[in-house]
């Protein structure tokens, strides 16, 4: 029973992580890419909690806490960067921000 649950959640988080990676690769809107990164982080969180339950230890959940703290910091800085980019280019499409592309 316990193994089955663990495997189910590992598979689920694998699917979520892959979807997030796919999103980062195929979308060109910076905000959507940012959200796909959040999706990948959440897939990892799900894995951590699953293993925390599997081993009956609390450490995995502590790691999730730190991932959330880092994600919050990332959101603040990332969105500020998006705001600054928009101010200069009036767009947040990755294809429009290519001054250094030559």
């Amino acid at each position: 029973m316990a193994i089955e649950v663990t495997e189910f959640y590992l598979l689920l988080s694998a699917v979520l992580f892959t979807l997030g990676a796919l999103g980062v690769m195929i979308r060109s809107n910076t905000i959507v890419m940012f959200m796909c990164v959040e999706l990948m982080l959440n897939a990892v969180n799900l894995t951590l909690v699953t293993f925390s339950r599997q081993f009956g230890e609390v450490h995995g959940q502590v790691f999730v806490f730190f991932v959330m703290a880092v994600a919050a910091a990332e959101a603040a800085v990332g969105l500020a960067i998006i705001l600054a980019v928009f101010r200069n280019y009036f767009s947040i499409q990755t294809s429009d921000v290519h001054d250094l592309a030559g």
Partner: peptide, 18 residues
């Protein structure tokens, strides 16, 4: 941020993406 910048447009696929 999406609301502040009025960014809610469907986006085309960019040439720089995979």
């Amino acid at each position: 941020v999406i609301m502040l910048l009025g960014l809610d447009e469907a986006s085309a696929v960019s040439k720089f993406k995979v």
